[in-house]
Design a protein around this nucleic acid. Structure first.
Lengths: 123, 123
DNA sequence: TTAACTGTACTAACATAATTAATACAGTTA
DNA sequence: TAACTGTATTAATTATGTTAGTACAGTTAA
């Protein structure tokens, strides 16, 4: 379900945060469902429970999950996650568009790239 | 000319590489002109000469500069830098467009964002 | 009530990468 | 020759991430 990329420069706990966010967005983890326990996920990934703990703490800090002591960590409503991801992407796009403009990309080139990404395989 | 951001998670030498690339693209450093010497830039930024040395080695590895022992580090032709930046941006755009699509951005929203970045203040 | 789960907290050890420090060597230039 | 250039090397230091081990508190079901 979750794979750690040791070539990735980001720390493990950040990768886990990102992977879980993706899984929530894709509906694999539904709102109010329980995430794997700290210890079981640590076991599954062969890493230390402290690292999972840190990832889960970060997810809670972002409002993406809530935890009930003794019970587990649970997925919050998907809305705030979508909103925060949208905001994040918007910033990235703005920055990248500006750089693209500066380096000499034309609008048309960007639109072509965009169409390629938005192309439907099964229209 | 160059400012180090200590809040930036990237190492200093990487920041320096990026800043110098930008200065070359902007024409502040012209082709075949000499970069500040390792020691003088280290002095100016109040960091260790070894760190500058590492940044300069990276710039040379990328083909963005060439060095003449005893003389200094010099800016290569701007072409390969532009090409590599274009390639880099293209990858970023492709990834970001795909994410944007998945999270629910419409093409129209992206084009609006793009137009905002490409807007001319003095048409 | 107890056993087996949950999350949380804390300290110590360890690993790695980045950075600093100090020194040395080689080529260039005035 | 003196004062610049880049390069190389080794050691110490710092910061961060990760691991290890232990302990404590709440929940749940037998």
């Amino acid at each position: 379900m979750i794979l750690i990329d040791y070539k990735d420069r980001r720390p493990i706990y950040e990768q886990i945060v990102e992977k879980i966010e993706t899984l929530i967005l894709k509906g694999v983890f539904e709102p109010d469902s329980m995430l794997p326990s700290v210890r079981s996920l640590a076991m599954e990934l062969s890493i230390n429970p402290n690292t999972i703990q840190r990832a889960y703490a970060e997810l809670e800090r972002k409002g993406i999950t809530y935890t009930v002591k003794g019970k587990g960590s649970f997925v919050s409503s998907r809305n705030e996650l979508i909103d925060s991801k949208k905001e994040e992407l918007k910033m990235t796009l703005q920055t990248t568009f500006l750089q693209a403009k500066e380096i000499g990309f034309t609008k048309e080139e960007l639109i072509t790239l965009m169409n390629a990404s938005y192309e439907e395989e099964n229209p």
